[in-house]
């Protein structure tokens, strides 16, 4: 047997080296995140002010604000959630409280997973061919919202399901034991307990939806509109698409850069707020809901 001390030392040394490397690599990921964030904050912060948020773009989008893009994104977020939230929550309730374990549940689960794995550009294609062309919604907030809603559906379903699962079965049994029906039990007992976590899921999907570009490219997004949308059949500008346009195909890319930084920062702020809010809620209510 090799010398005891030497062996111990070499084991220690190898471990120290390996752990050191892992630590450095991990921190470099954190560093990447901070570089991205601080760069965009640094470049964007001087652009953002009240006018930037509330004014229309002017002079070929080299001046002015991003108000219509903000409004558009708000419409799309609201529209997609009006669709995805109730449907997703109901689907999750149905899955978790009503369907028995078995082949059907497995299929539904698998399908939800598949849906979650479909790339967002494919949602865009689908939204275009179904909502825009087949149903004749045209490029519209309605078509865009529905497309985004479908994309957000798996997120809502998963987070809701997990919050329902986190509800202790004793609550259900107690309520059923008192003679309540299954639906009453779900509505009066299970949902209120799971509610905070469901809301966390909602916030996370809002964060996700507000940054998606590919699904809205061909279903709603407009390069530039001089006025705000007035109905759900109007086209709209949207923040992520606006950033794409500003950074790749503006009339004068150099002149639009500051506006692009500002737009990127607004997007980052939305995501930051959604994440902080979700984390805060989670901590506050003390139960875990998985992201993504």
């Amino acid at each position: 047997m090799p010398d005891e001390n030497k062996l111990a030392k070499s084991k220690k040394r190898k471990q120290a080296v390996a752990f050191g490397i892992f630590r450095i690599l991990t921190y470099s990921i954190v560093a990447i995140l901070f570089i991205i964030l601080s760069f965009i904050i640094y470049k964007g912060i001087s652009v953002i002010n009240w006018n930037f948020i509330t004014q229309m773009p002017t002079e070929g989008m080299t001046k002015g604000g991003i108000f219509p893009a903000i409004v558009g994104t708000l419409c799309l977020v609201a529209g997609s959630m009006i669709f995805a939230f109730p449907v997703g929550v109901l689907a999750a309730i149905y899955m978790n409280e009503y369907v028995k374990d078995g082949i059907i549940k497995k299929i539904i689960k698998q399908m939800t997973n598949n849906l979650a794995g479909i790339p967002s550009i494919v949602f865009g294609l689908f939204g275009m061919s179904l909502f825009v062309n087949k149903l004749h919604f045209g490029d519209s907030i309605l078509a865009g919202s529905l497309t985004l809603g479908l994309l957000a559906l798996p997120v809502v379903i998963r987070t809701t399901e997990e919050s329902l699962k986190a509800v202790d079965n004793t609550f259900r049994h107690a309520s059923l034991g008192l003679g309540a029906t299954k639906w009453e039990t779900t509505r009066r007992v299970v949902l209120p307990i799971a509610f905070p976590n469901i809301i966390t899921g909602l916030i996370l999907s809002i964060g996700r939806v507000s940054g998606e570009t590919a699904p809205i490219l061909f279903t709603v997004a407009a390069y530039f509109l001089p006025k705000l949308p007035t109905s759900i059949f109007d086209q709209a500008m949207a923040l992520p698409y606006h950033l794409y346009v500003l950074s790749t195909s503006g009339t004068d890319i150099e002149a639009t850069r500051p506006i692009a930084y500002g737009t990127a920062l607004v997007l980052i702020i939305i995501v930051l707020i959604a994440n902080l809010l979700a984390n805060g809620l989670r901590k506050y209510f003390g139960k875990k809901v998985k992201m993504n």
Binding site: I29, G211, Y241, S247, A260, A264, L267, V271, N275, N279
Partner: peptide
Amino acid sequence: PLIELLAGIPSVVYGFFGLV
């Protein structure tokens, strides 16, 4: 949460960062 944040940044923002 930092990793979650990394996952939450929209892809256009990544693209923009990559571009500049």
